[in-house]
Design a protein around this nucleic acid. Structure first.
Length: 926
RNA sequence: GUUUCUAUAGUUCAGUAGGUAGAACAUCCGCUUGAUAAGCGGCAGGUCGUAAGUUCGAGUCUUGCUAGAAACACCA
């Protein structure tokens, strides 16, 4: 008789190899045909909501690894929350306005396109990009409302973005002001940072003397000083034309300044730069007579070098260095960002004498009508006449140029709109204060996010929200032609306009037919339409207002915003500010950030280095589940590193998981839970122990690790569990029972009952990460091709009584197993045995362990996978391995003295006879 | 340059209140051939980025340095 046919070797449709690259797309087709997202929404109706609000990626270009990491993390959150019993809708979004798209369209169609047509082309381009990215995200297995995403260029969203600005205006935060921007004289317009390129340029470099008019400055110094001599602070500049706009000279608080006697006057220069400045001229006798620190110079007045009616103060600035120049910086707030910022601090006038065409306006003394470049020479000449020039030379340095004209740019103050950080609202609170208070109430993962955001809010300047662009949400205000004031009815006018935008998009505002008159605003003739657009960060920052509040299935504040750490400066902040300015609080309760992707050496990925890896390539080679597993295995609080080796290791882990699940499914192929379940109290003891372990692992993974978004610890716990608890212990010792006991006997049904719980629990626990594989398992175990893990909550693992006692007992048994395995290995190395079933075991054990082991009786040998065990009471624990002298049972491979004792079945043992022709063996413990 | 971070075996990660460094995977060796392009066992792998300091004692606390990341700024 061929006893092989009497062994329960089962087959499963669940393939060993995932073949994910090929099969995932087929699964996706099915999922979308079944409309699983909407089906899920119906099933979740009435549950507590969990809102993860999607930060909109910019609609330009194929998805890269960073996108993939971000979306996969979001998906793991959404899926794990869903399975934990929440209603967790996910509405993906896209950021559609803005410069990069304008550039792309300009590049493809030229730049002399009428504005309306230009915007149409931008809209069309953005739409195409959205579709491309959407396809990639869906391929990743991201679950979401892909049929109805939100786009910042949706008419409704555009209208609500306008309304959001209206609310901020109503609450008193919107202000006009001047700010220096990169200005191209040829374009006659402001340039964005991205349109600026740096090229070398030769500029005049001049040292200029500012006479200090306040003799009290000597009190800042110690030393013997001649009070009758004049003091000149020397500044250095490479843009002489900015001197007409000079409002101050700036020193560093901690920098040492020297009073240098030369040419019968005193010069003020940073101590470290004295020689280099004096040496601009030849043979100057000089002597340092006193030293002081910059902090003591604050407030003293000096005389502007050529405008005699202008007295400018010495101020302190953090940007002052002693690398070059004199350690004293000429400050023209209209012509430099740092000058502007320090100017705000000291309330300096932002005086901009330069017109749109780059020439000085008509009321500028000395230089009216001159182009700034021509003015350079004239300024130098004037300084020389006034004897305010110490020296001049040329400097070749890197300087900003227009990327179109390749001509040098200037910094020039222009009228802009700001959301003010420091103006108190009706309740007496500034936006900065509200934002800081909101940060306090927000949760952060990792926790340092709070400090980072806080530092940024504390230091940030007012938010300049106006842009001189075409493809953006318009600032739908009317301003007075002369005063520049907003129309008194702005709030109601804005709502009128918003309604039009809701119907026909932002073009409604740019339509020349839309005028103050056509809207019947008061005093229309004296008001003009603003042509500025809003900073695109405002669009996305206001989505709590334009999306969360508007869509029925969503809520504001959201439970969670989840983005890369760069968004502390970006979306987290723009959302916080609009949230506070509109509603007085942050639009989120918790912020979670992840790092960026780097290679195995921790270097960022870039095309030029050639160390980049494309998500599409990973999915085509390994499959989305591998990519997802990599994301889940990484500690995303720092950088996520990826290389071919890391991918291979990830695929190794995947195979282990998959094979464990396959083994479970295969051994459940003849098991029907409804009919074959063994009641808890009747389970074989080691099966109870396995359930206890499963319960504890699930509790940790679900309630501790998933709940705190520590996915890498969850996956580690799960993989360890599959390897250690299951592969290395439970499943290994179960094989004998599964294969050799009678198919429908209690012993076998007992462990199948546990395998059933195991499979369901594991499939659900893996499903937030391995969404494809888990559902593949799920269809098999449920025997229902249209079921999904998504439609279920975490498995209810049965609770075993006396779990502590059983854990202790089996813990002891497992500990001894380690010693036994080592001893078996020793004998294997000696060549005494091969398979552990060739061994008989003699265990010497202390009293307590002896009792535990003895209680298992005949079942103990199955735990240690040997042919027989003899236990002896002793004072110390000891294990002896003896090769069995019995015959090997052809069927169960145990060595037994009963082999041959049955005449009809003389090649198998009595246990097997019972299992083949009897009622099946009895197992109580293992 | 500033701010906020990161740095533990080949790889991914643990390391809780400072007390002789852990896991999994991979490598290597062996067993098995009834999870088989699988499974099981065993050995080996680390001066915890670096240098000081605090301490009886530091991967764990402090400081400097180096390398890497993000954001911001700058070249007057």
């Amino acid at each position: 008789m061929d006893y092989k046919n009497t062994v329960n070797l089962l087959e499963t449709e669940f393939p060993m190899r995932g073949d994910l690259a090929k099969r995932e797309p087929l699964m996706l087709d099915k999922w979308y045909k079944e409309d699983r997202y909407n089906k899920l929404r119906k099933k979740c109706k009435g549950r507590k909501k969990f809102i993860l609000h999607d930060g909109p990626p910019y609609a330009n270009g194929d998805i890269h690894l960073g996108h993939a990491v971000n979306k996969v993390l979001k998906d793991i959150v959404v899926r794990s929350k869903t399975i934990a019993g929440f209603d967790a809708p996910y509405v993906p979004g896209w950021d559609c306005h803005g410069l990069p798209i304008e550039h792309k369209v300009e590049k493809d169609h030229g730049k002399n396109i009428p504005a309306k047509e230009f915007r149409e082309k931008c809209r069309k381009y953005a739409k195409e990009q959205v579709e491309i990215q959407k396809k990639g995200f869906k391929r990743l297995g991201i679950l979401g409302d892909w049929e109805n995403p939100y786009l910042t260029m949706d008419y409704k969203v555009e209208a609500d973005t306008v309304r959001a600005l209206g609310e901020i205006y109503k609450n008193g935060y919107l202000q006009s002001g001047k700010k220096p921007v990169h200005w191209c004289i040829e374009c006659g317009s402001a340039l964005a940072e991205a349109e600026v390129e740096y090229q070398d340029k030769v500029s005049p470099a001049i040292f200029v003397k500012f006479k200090i008019v306040d003799k009290n400055i000597f009190k800042a110094f110690n030393g013997s000083i001649d009070n009758n001599l004049d003091v000149y602070a020397i500044i250095w500049t490479t843009t002489p034309w900015t001197l007409p706009a000079n409002q101050a000279i700036c020193v560093g608080h901690d920098i040492q300044y020297a009073l240098v006697k030369a040419h019968n006057s005193y010069l003020l220069i940073a101590k470290d730069l004295v020689e280099s400045v004096i040496n601009q001229k030849e043979n100057v006798d000089h002597e340092i007579v006193a030293i002081t620190e910059g902090g003591k110079l604050e407030g003293f007045k000096s005389q502007h070098p050529f405008y005699t009616d202008r007295i400018v103060p010495i101020i302190l600035g953090e940007h002052v260095t002693t690398d070059t120049g004199t350690g004293i910086v000429h400050t023209a707030p209209a012509h430099g960002i740092e000058d502007y910022q320090v100017g705000l601090k000291y309330k300096l006038e932002i005086h901009n004498p330069v017109g749109d065409d780059g020439s000085f306006i008509s009321n500028t003394p000395l230089f009216a009508g001159l182009k700034v470049w021509a003015a350079n020479a004239k300024v130098i000449e004037t300084l020389d006449e006034k004897q305010a020039l110490w020296s001049q030379s040329k400097l070749n340095h890197s300087y900003p140029h227009c990327w179109r004209h390749k001509t040098p740019l200037i910094f020039r103050a222009t009228s802009q709109w700001f959301i003010s950080m420091d103006v108190a609202n009706h309740a007496g609170k500034t936006l900065r204060k509200q934002a800081l208070e909101s940060i306090d109430k927000t949760g952060f993962s990792p926790s340092w996010g709070r400090a980072r955001l806080e530092a940024m809010i504390k230091n940030r300047p007012d938010w300049c929200v106006s842009r001189q662009r075409n493809w953006g949400t318009p600032m739908t205000f009317f301003v007075h032609r002369e005063t520049g004031e907003l129309h008194p009815d702005s709030y109601t006018i804005l709502e009128q306009v918003a309604q039009k935008i809701e119907n026909s998009g932002i073009d409604a505002w740019f339509d020349p037919e839309l005028t103050g008159e056509s809207l019947h605003i008061k005093d229309a003739v004296n008001y003009r339409k603003l042509t500025d657009t809003i900073d695109v960060w405002f669009d996305s920052g206001a989505t709590h207002f334009s999306v969360l509040k508007r869509r029925e299935e969503l809520l504001s504040p959201a439970d969670l915003y989840l983005e890369g750490s760069d968004q502390h400066r970006g979306w987290f902040q723009s959302s916080l500010l609009t949230g506070c300015a509109i509603n007085g609080r942050a639009p989120y309760n918790h912020l979670l950030t992840h790092g960026f992707t780097v290679d195995e050496n921790g270097h960022k990925m870039s095309k030029s280095k050639g160390n980049g890896i494309e998500p599409i390539e990973i999915m085509n080679q390994y499959g989305a589940d591998i990519l997802r597993l990599w994301v889940a295995s990484s500690d995303y609080s720092g950088e996520l590193s990826l290389s071919n080796e890391i991918l291979k290791r990830t695929a190794d882990n995947y195979r282990r998981i998959r094979n464990t699940l396959r083994f479970l499914l295969a051994n459940l192929a003849d098991f029907n839970f409804a009919n074959d379940e063994v009641k808890l109290d009747d389970l074989v003891e080691v099966d109870k122990y396995a359930l206890i372990r499963l319960h504890s692992v699930q509790d940790k993974v679900v309630n501790k690790l998933y709940a705190s978004f520590q996915f890498h610890l969850a996956i580690q716990e799960l993989v360890n569990y599959c390897s250690e608890d299951l592969g290395g212990f439970y499943l290994d010792i179960l094989k004998d029972r599964l294969y050799t006991s009678k198919a429908d006997c209690h012993a076998r049904r007992s462990c199948q009952t546990v395998l059933y719980h195991l499979t369901k629990s594991l499939a659900l626990m893996f499903s937030p990460i391995l969404c494809f594989t888990a559902d593949e398992v799920w269809e098999t175990i449920q025997n229902d091709k249209s079921d999904s893990t998504l439609y279920h909550t975490y498995h209810q693992v049965p609770v075993i009584h006396d779990s502590e006692m059983l854990q202790y007992k089996w813990g002891q048994i497992e500990e001894l197993r380690v010693i036994i395995l080592k001893e078996l290995e020793n004998k294997r190395v000696e060549g005494v045995i091969g398979s552990s079933l060739q061994a008989d075991l003699v265990i010497k054990a202390e009293e307590q362990l002896f009792e535990i082991l003895s209680a298992l009786g005949n079942d103990l040998k199955f735990v240690y996978m040997v042919s027989s065990v003899v236990i002896e009471k002793a004072t110390t624990t000891d294990v002896t391995v003896i090769p069995s002298s019995n015959l090997k049972c052809e069927r169960c491979w145990h060595y037994s003295d009963t082999v041959g004792s049955n005449h009809e079945h003389n090649t198998i043992c009595n246990r097997c006879v019972e299992n083949v022709v009897g009622n099946g063996e009895i197992r109580q413990f293992a």
